[in-house]
Design a protein around this nucleic acid. Structure first.
Lengths: 119, 119
DNA sequence: ATTCAACCTGGAGCGCGCTCCAGGTCAAGC
DNA sequence: GCTTGACCTGGAGCGCGCTCCAGGTTGAAT
């Protein structure tokens, strides 16, 4: 149950300190606890949230959807909506994977063609 | 061996007319033939180039690499370099696919967890 | 007590990849 | 001949997702 400074949170989450502040400002991350002096103290729970947000982000979820997910996570009566949002994103990821495979195949064809015509 | 107006080229390639001009300005696409009056006339060859560029672009190749590929295509003695560039990109696409699969798995886990804890 | 790095805020700036605009030209149809 | 819409150029502007900055505060170490 220890806490983390912004620099530690940045290192562990892979987001920059600036991005952590930005996510909080944007309402993606819930307001983080503070010391008496006003410094942020990230909890283990904040870090695991950030870890999953990073996964969603890197999987191409736009900021706006990320914010929506963050909002839902602050209301305990939204499990169904969260599942729906994640399912939707899973479909988007599947489509992206399929697309990439097709592109990948075309690149291979092109390489083969170059090798045939000049190699 | 017919030619296409900018509007037709845009429709067939899926790029906007503005983007076609932009790609030409940026040296991604070789200078397109013109009518006496200065209007662009895209050839079938331009269109097939655009089609492949679209594939590369949608597969995440940044503009800078796209330009490099475009440049190489204007010099007939660069087949080996083109192959190298495409191979490199193929690896990048493979990595992206792997990453996406991992993210996809985590999203599934999260969904399962939500369903277990609330559904 | 002093230093100094890490932190704070609000707001401006940036890089990418287009996209749009002003002001003018060209050419098909009437 | 005139209209009209697609086209031309150079350059400004935009949306996203951060990233950086100025100017000030905090607090651990010396």
């Amino acid at each position: 149950m220890r806490t983390y400074t912004p620099a530690e949170a940045a290192e562990r989450s892979g987001f920059s300190v600036d991005t952590l502040r930005y996510y909080e400002r944007e309402g993606i991350l819930a307001p983080v606890a503070r010391t008496a002096g006003g410094r942020r103290t990230y909890s283990d729970s904040d870090l695991s949230t950030l870890d999953f947000l990073r996964c969603l982000r890197d999987a191409g979820m736009p900021i706006e959807r990320l914010r929506r997910y963050g909002e839902l996570c602050r209301d305990p009566n939204t499990i169904a909506e969260r599942i729906a949002l994640l399912r939707e994103h899973a479909v988007a990821v599947d489509n992206q994977i399929d697309q990439l495979r097709r592109y990948r195949a075309r690149v291979d064809e092109k390489i083969a063609w170059y090798e045939g015509s000049a190699g």
